Computed example of a mutant assay.
Amino acid sequence: MFWNLGEQEELQSLWNKYYAKCHGIIYVIDSTDGERLSESKEAFEKVVLSEALDGILILVLANKQNVETCLSIPDIKTTFSDCTCKIGQQVCLPPACTALTGKGV
Rank of each mutant, 00 (worst) to 15 (best):
Q89V: 10
S72M: 11
P95V: 07
Y19W: 08
L49Y: 02
G34Q: 13
E10L: 09
C22A: 02
K77Q: 10
S13C: 07
L53I: 00
L61I: 06
R36G: 01
T84G: 01
K64P: 03
G6N: 07
E35S: 14
E51A: 09
G88S: 02
K41D: 01
G55C: 01
L11T: 12
D30V: 09
C97A: 07
N4V: 04
L49M: 02
N4R: 05
E42K: 12
K46V: 04
P74H: 08
V67N: 11
Q8G: 15
P94H: 05
E42R: 13
L49F: 05
Q89I: 06
A52C: 04
L57Y: 06
K64T: 02
Q89G: 01
A62T: 07
F44G: 05
C85W: 11
A62Q: 00
S38W: 11
G6I: 06
G55I: 03
A99F: 03
V67T: 11
G24D: 08
T32L: 00
N4W: 11
L53R: 02
L5T: 10
D33V: 12
E51P: 00
A96Q: 13
A52M: 10
T78R: 14
T84F: 10
K21G: 06
H23E: 13
L93C: 12
N4S: 10
G88F: 04
P94C: 13
S40E: 08
L37P: 04
K103E: 12
E39M: 07
Y19R: 00
W3K: 15
D75K: 15
Q12K: 12
G6Q: 04
K64F: 09
L49A: 00
E45L: 05
H23K: 15
A52E: 15
A52G: 03
P94N: 12
E68A: 14
S31T: 10
C22P: 02
F44Y: 04
T78A: 15
A96L: 09
V105C: 03
L71M: 15
Y27L: 00
E42V: 01
K77E: 14
I73K: 02
V67Q: 10
A96N: 03
S40L: 02
P74Q: 08
T78K: 13
F2C: 10
E45P: 03
T98C: 15
G55L: 01
S40G: 03
Q65H: 09
T101G: 04
A96F: 08
T101S: 05
T98N: 13
K77L: 04
G34M: 10
S13W: 05
P95E: 11
Q12C: 09
G88D: 07
N4L: 09
G34W: 11
